[in-house]
């Protein structure tokens, strides 16, 4: 469903010169699977997911999503993915219902099917009481619900969640995680980035630990734990990152 090959993205930075946000990243995600990108802030998770969702263009490398190449058929890709991140806000001057309707129409849903779909989603996410509230008047939890509804309104086969629980209280975060879980059970192909260990352990079938634009290790949690002989996920994470930093320092000196 998602196939990324050698994705590379470099930026020009005033202070540091040319910087690699993503350095030859490759991975595959299958339907019915949640693939976790685990990494500290600034590791390149967001860049990677933005490339897969065609918002950014890769400097080199390629990605195929649901059978379409992100570089040559971005519109086809966009209509087959649902993307949600901390940067995909909702409109202040639209009500929850208008917002979801608007994006549903953008995806080309027929009016009848759209209304039915909205009823379904609002039912599952328990959004009926907020359907006529303007975005500016909503609490963070309500906004997150609208965002999820917006992400899944066109029932996409591929879903991309970029740190969806950042800044949410425990209750809302839990609801979001539950929603993602149920989406996996529907057979969706899901890629999920976070820096929170617990979510990874709970949710992800396979993970990639990403640091400074490079994938340090990838596999299922059990695989990783046995490979590095470290039963604690958090310790494993620290271990890998400090090892990588030490390696870079050694290379340079």
């Amino acid at each position: 469903m998602i196939h990324a090959q050698d994705l590379t993205k470099s930026f020009a930075d005033l202070k540091r010169g040319s910087v690699y946000a993503l350095d030859h990243v490759s991975f595959d995600v299958q339907p019915g699977e949640i693939y976790g990108l685990l990494g500290p802030n600034g590791a390149g998770k967001t860049t990677c997911l933005r490339i897969i969702s065609t918002v950014l263009r890769p400097t080199s490398g390629s990605a195929v999503v649901a059978g379409y190449d992100v570089a040559t058929q971005p519109e086809k890709v966009r209509s087959r993915i649902g993307f949600m991140s901390g940067n995909t806000g909702i409109y202040d001057r639209m009500t929850a219902r208008e917002m979801v309707e608007y994006f549903g129409r953008m995806y080309g849903l027929e009016e009848d099917a759209l209304q039915q779909r909205i009823e379904e989603i609002f039912e599952t996410l328990q959004m009926h009481d907020i359907s006529d509230i303007l975005g500016s008047k909503m609490s963070t939890g309500m906004k997150q619900k609208v965002s999820i509804a917006r992400t899944i309104v066109h029932d996409p086969p591929v879903l991309i969640f970029d740190e969806p629980t950042t800044g949410l209280d425990v209750l809302v975060a839990r609801a979001v995680i539950k929603a993602i879980e149920s989406l996996r059970d529907q057979g969706k192909c899901i890629i999920f980035s976070t820096h929170i260990m617990r979510e990874v352990e709970k949710l992800c079938d396979r993970i990639a630990i990403i640091h400074k634009g490079k994938i340090l290790a990838t596999g299922t949690i059990d695989e990783l734990e046995s490979e590095y002989d470290e039963p604690d996920m958090e310790e494993l994470f620290f271990e890998l990152i400090s090892r990588s930093d030490a390696q870079v320092a050694a290379e340079l000196s």
């Binding site: 065609t54 940067n87 995909t88 953008m106």
Partner: peptide
């Protein structure tokens, strides 16, 4: 500024 640019960019519209 309101953080909705990316929301718009990931919808199918070119």
């Amino acid at each position: 500024e309101r953080g909705t640019m990316e929301t718009l960019l990931i919808c199918p519209a070119s």
